[in-house]
Design a protein around this nucleic acid. Structure first.
Length: 647
RNA sequence: GCCGAUGUAGCUCAGCUGGUCAGAGCAGCUGAUUUGUAAUCAGCAGGCCGGGGGUUCGAAUCCCUUCAUCGGCUCCA
């Protein structure tokens, strides 16, 4: 007999070899129907696996990530089983569960292609198999035996994976005729997979290596109930409506032109205004925080980038140098502002008393991004960074780091960006060749970042091997409408450029010292930031930021004169106001201007003209009553100042 | 760069297996209406069906190629 302890600390006795599913059933069949996995002493296991020793058990229902991962992992196997029936000889790579569903990477064989039109057929086969209530069996075998099985099958991907595993702990899972190398855990059977949708199809390099074969990746999602799938698909549809490319077009914020060139955004008047407002907003804050603003050219001599090291590292993947007609000099479109800033630092001598120097620029940079990388405003070839460099004494590094984190937190809070994550990227200590700089400096910098983030109360994830080649960094990531993560703000330590540009300051000991340089951007790039802002607000920007704050809707032509008076009054009060003089009914004007996401609509007709008032409609809320003009301007001003005075 | 898909009026989209297939709604313009809280009515105008080749008596429709876009992969100073 064994003792099983439940989350409430109660204990029950079971016979050794009982399955987690049996245990669930012994509590209630209702529970057993709802659980998809169980954790035994913290390890997630198949429900069907026997339990042979005393353990603490936790059952995982759909709301637990463990349950969904198990569910989707089994679904990936179900997909593979369907594929194996439909495409004899197909070979399998990996098929994991992901945050929202699962995928399987497959190689259908030379010359064979799976395309999107095939997905419904595969989906149908999966449904058939799921209905057959196929039990899933776990088989533990030796490495040699595993190699033999997959070698016989001719699946070189699986044999490659197996050959890298330690002998002794290899498990296979069998779902009908489909046998897969897999650590598990899995569902006991396919019957709980009730709703199945294959979502998309993509190429993916085997093991993420672009030099290796491109496999076909099939993405899908499944649920235990049809209704959950419906809701999920609806959610995806809603998310698509928030796509910044769509809203950017609708609201006339930006566009692209094939003639100008791909990845080169054109900011339309309304978008430009919004962008400029962000710049003004940030500039004012930078001045309060001790930054100086600088401006540098869009090109730089190729020698500048040879000095900085960027040419060697990225020269061949950049726009190629421009040549002067007479002297044959070479200039590059600037991919970074930092080399220019280093030369500004060098333009005058520095004492330790001047440090830290905080040099900021809204600098437009140009990077050659691969064709397939371009994506709306989030990945472009020309973008403006809200870039700055802090030149400081080594001892000041941590403090400067904290100041920057504070600015990021302040900015995001002011813009109501609450849903961001922070990632600390360290170097891969096992591959030091990839990085430049001494071990000592790296260690100092990594320690400063970790401590600074901790002291500012940031929740961070630490990822090794993601550091820039010259130093560790702290990145701020935000998700877009469909859950893709984008990096916005970044703070990076750099010992390299001060060395290469021979930066120095005179210390209190009257000796020359080398400053440390911190790179940082808060928005990251204005392009990407605006993209993410559009997706998070669905185009309903804060009042202070939005291009047009108010629109006047005269009930008929008779009230155009009064409307113009209102317009002048509001514009004179610095409220960005438009007037809709079209020959349309109010209902139509309301609808159109709601769709334009204008925060306040003012309806004016006979009543308003006679009483010198406006009838106010708030976007998304409807009629909020009648106000006198003065009252309305105060109302708007107050809202703006509330939005901007978040401390 | 790689894999798959898409590309028809300013926008959103119809147009099946090649033969009145160049269409609709919205936007635009003109006129009527003078309008009270999410779509007033009528008329007009708009496209070399992404570009370039080809197959065919005939191509938006089939093939090749090229460009761009979308979903991923790889990359991202």
């Amino acid at each position: 007999m064994i003792n099983i302890t439940f989350p409430d600390n109660s204990t029950r006795e079971y016979e050794s070899g009982v399955s987690s599913l049996d245990i669930a059933n012994s509590i209630s069949p209702g529970l057993a129907r709802q659980v998809y996995a169980a954790s035994l002493n913290g390890e997630t296991r198949d429900l069907s696996r026997p339990v042979n020793e005393d353990a603490r058990i936790v059952f995982h229902k759909w709301n637990d990530e463990e349950a969904r991962h198990t569910f989707w992992h089994t679904s990936a196997h179900l997909l593979a089983a369907a594929l194996e029936e439909l495409y004899p000889g197909i070979k399998f790579g990996i098929g994991p569960s992901i945050g929202n569903g699962f995928y399987y990477d497959v190689d259908p064989g030379d010359g064979k292609v799976i395309s999107e039109s095939d997905l419904p057929v595969i989906e149908k086969k999966m449904k058939e198999l799921a209905k057959q209530k196929i039990g899933i069996e776990r088989i533990e075998i030796s490495k040699a035996r595993a190699l033999e099985i997959f070698d016989k099958k001719g699946d070189e991907y699986k044999t490659e994976l197996i050959s890298e595993l330690e002998d002794g702990n290899i498990s296979l899972y069998k779902l009908g005729n489909f046998v897969d190398l897999c650590r598990g855990p899995h569902l006991p059977g396919t019957e709980s997979i009730k709703a199945i949708k294959l979502l998309s199809l993509a190429g993916a390099y085997w093991r993420g290596d672009e030099k290796r074969k491109m496999m076909t990746r099939i993405y899908g999602i499944t649920f235990p109930k049809a209704k959950l799938l419906e809701e999920h698909l609806l959610m995806l549809e809603e998310a698509k409506k928030r796509d910044h490319r769509k809203i950017g077009k609708e609201l006339e914020l930006f566009s692209f032109s094939q003639k100008v060139g791909m990845g080169l955004p054109l900011w339309l008047p309304r978008g430009s205004e919004l962008r400029q407002r962000l710049i003004d907003f940030m500039t004012a804050e930078l001045k309060r925080r001790g930054y100086t603003i600088v401006t540098t050219p869009h090109i730089g001599n190729v020698e500048l980038y040879k000095t900085s090291g960027h040419y060697e590292k990225y020269g061949s993947d950049s726009f190629q140098p421009l040549n002067t007609p007479q002297e044959g000099e070479q200039f590059m479109l600037k991919p970074m502002n930092c080399p220019h800033h280093c030369e500004i630092y060098n333009a005058s001598p520095h004492s330790y008393k001047d440090l830290p120097v905080r040099m900021a620029e809204f600098g437009t940079v140009y990077r050659y991004e691969q064709h397939g990388e371009l994506h709306g405003l989030t990945r472009v070839r020309s973008f403006t960074q809200d870039d700055a460099h802090h030149f400081c004494e080594p001892d000041q590094m941590k403090d400067e780091f904290k100041k920057i984190i504070d600015l990021v937190q302040w900015t995001f809070k002011s813009l109501n960006f609450t849903d961001y994550t922070a990632q600390i990227s360290l170097r891969d200590a096992s591959d030091k060749e990839k990085y430049i700089g001494s071990d000592e400096n790296w260690e100092k910098a990594e320690k400063a970042i970790i401590e600074a983030a901790g002291e500012k109360g940031m929740q961070t994830t630490v990822v090794e091997g993601e550091a820039a080649f010259y130093g560790p960094k702290l990145d701020f990531m935000v998700k877009d409408a469909i859950g893709r993560e984008w990096q916005l703000g970044t703070i990076q330590v750099d010992y390299n450029l001060p060395e290469r540009f021979d930066l120095s300051y005179t210390g209190s000991d009257n000796q020359k010292h080398r400053p440390v340089m911190l790179h940082r951007a808060i928005f990251g790039s204005l392009e990407r930031f605006v993209a993410v802002l559009i997706e998070s607000t669905a185009g309903k920007f804060p009042l202070w930021l939005t291009p047009d704050q108010v629109i006047i809707l005269p009930v008929s032509e008779k009230y155009h004169d009064y409307s113009k008076k209102v317009l002048n009054f509001l514009n004179n009060s610095d409220i960005r106001t438009l007037i809709d003089e079209r020959n349309e009914k109010v209902g139509k004007k309301i609808r159109d201007n709601e769709l334009r996401r204008i925060p306040y609509l003012l309806i004016v007709g006979e009543k308003e003209e006679n009483s010198s008032t406006v009838s106010v409609r708030k976007q998304g809320k409807g009629d909020i009553g009648t106000m006198e003009l003065e009252e309305f301007t105060n109302f708007i001003r107050q809202q703006v100042s509330e939005e901007l005075n978040i401390k």
